[in-house]
Design a binder for these strands. Structure first.
Lengths: 244, 244
DNA sequence: TGATAATTTGACCGGTTGGTAAACATTACA
DNA sequence: TGTAATGTTTACCAACCGGTCAAATTATCA
């Protein structure tokens, strides 16, 4: 059983975001927010995550989501005015969670330990929340038409901030001089690879590695890669050699 | 102007692959293969690459491909019996090209130089053939329903072979001991990231880095990462310091 | 319990999509 | 040049898709 993260934003449906038509779904025009609304919207977003992450926006149909959610199509449209509104709400809800590990990146910590812990956390997310990863991957891969603002706004701001931290570490000689942005890209890509390209990873590794062992192997490899690189180190630290 | 790789497989349309219905498109039932068939199929596959790579299989329509190809929808279906057949032919044609860099991986070369050169080549492909990269990314991301065989067959075989080479290098002490499969995954993910997640990379870097400079920065960073890691090296090799 | 608010659904609509049929146009070649 | 082979297009179809509507059902609470 996997951890089931409860997401923070609750009142995400009532207020439609600016820029759009700003028409409320009928469920949001009731006098107060009911228990049923709470539950059903939760059900729908869970189903939407399942479907959107597997087929992308265009490749998903409201009927599919309705079937997974166990309700009828018009009922879905009672809670979310359009298919796009479902996607929107899902993105808004998941993006925060998704950026948490980067936010926890601590300027005052030990640089190598911070990076190592960031890698570990991202890898855990790839293992425990692959659908969320694929949701974004699908979106970005197809040109991010629906999340451009989030990328250029909040995401860029956060990355700029953390890149500055890394640059300072490098300047102080605590880690090797390197482009902090590309370091972040490298950590993102290597860890999310295990969620986004899961079928390929499984196909290549073969079914003998059926369990979650590949995540532990990946963690070991990535920690070593980012810390030591591939060069043969003269005095290998003993902890690394226990694995093999 | 980017290099325009001419692909090898020519007679890719005549023989439909096993497993399917095995019905030939009308163009393949002619007495001989004509010049027009050659040209039009080329046009169509080029257009199909443009569209499929941008929207995925489900998200692409035959009409879109027809418009990009500059011909009518029924005309496309004269050369390819179904939308799936176009996709199939495209995958078959592109997969070979795509695996070339890994094939060139040479067991007899200098390990570090080989890995460095593999990274460079993959990065060049991400820059020069991003559509090909996204075509596969879209497919794999959505569960690889149409290329499962290729992944478990030819791809796995090639990776197994090269992984053995890397393992031998590690055993001989020429590079650090590490899991060769995860090393290959790491090279794939970090390099293809610049093709598949291009809009995100651009958004985060900002438009000041509009040109192809990010690819040179990425190359510098990745070479350093994979060779030296992030640990501060006592005697940094002089070539690396010229960049900054 | 009754009345009102909230929820659910079946029937339907216009537009799109993958694909077909057949008429029409063009090319290759004897 | 004539004709058979090849190529192209118009018109069309059935299934699907996003979304609406009005009627029916259920929950809430005075």
């Amino acid at each position: 059983m996997r951890p089931q993260k409860t997401h923070g934003a609750i009142v995400v449906v009532r207020k439609q975001r600016a820029g759009g038509k700003m028409v409320l779904p009928r469920a949001a025009r009731t006098q107060r927010r009911t228990r049923i609304q709470e539950e059903k919207e939760e059900q729908i977003l869970e189903a939407a995550l399942e479907v959107f992450s597997a087929h992308g926006f265009r490749g998903s149909t409201i009927d599919q989501i309705a079937e997974v959610a166990g309700m009828s199509k018009p009922n879905l449209l009672y809670y979310f005015r359009t298919k796009e509104a479902m996607h929107r709400a899902l993105i808004d809800r998941v993006l925060d969670t998704w950026l948490d590990p980067l936010r926890e990146f601590n300027a005052d910590g030990n640089p190598v330990a911070e990076i190592r812990s960031y890698i570990r956390r991202k890898l855990e997310m790839a293992r425990d929340f692959p659908r969320e990863s694929r949701l974004f991957a699908n979106e970005v891969l197809q040109g991010a038409p629906r999340i451009e603002d989030e990328l250029k706004g909040p995401l860029k701001a956060l990355v700029d901030e953390k890149a500055e931290v890394i640059r300072a570490w490098a300047k102080a000689g605590k880690i090797a001089k390197c482009d902090p942005y590309h370091l972040i890209f490298a950590i993102w890509s290597t860890t999310q690879h295990y969620a986004d390209f899961d079928v390929q990873v499984r196909a290549v590794l073969g079914q003998e590695n059926a369990g979650d062992g590949r995540f532990e192997d990946a963690a070991r490899f990535l920690e070593r890669l980012f810390v030591d690189g591939l060069q043969v180190s003269e005095q290998p630290s003993s902890e690394h050699d226990e694995g093999e």
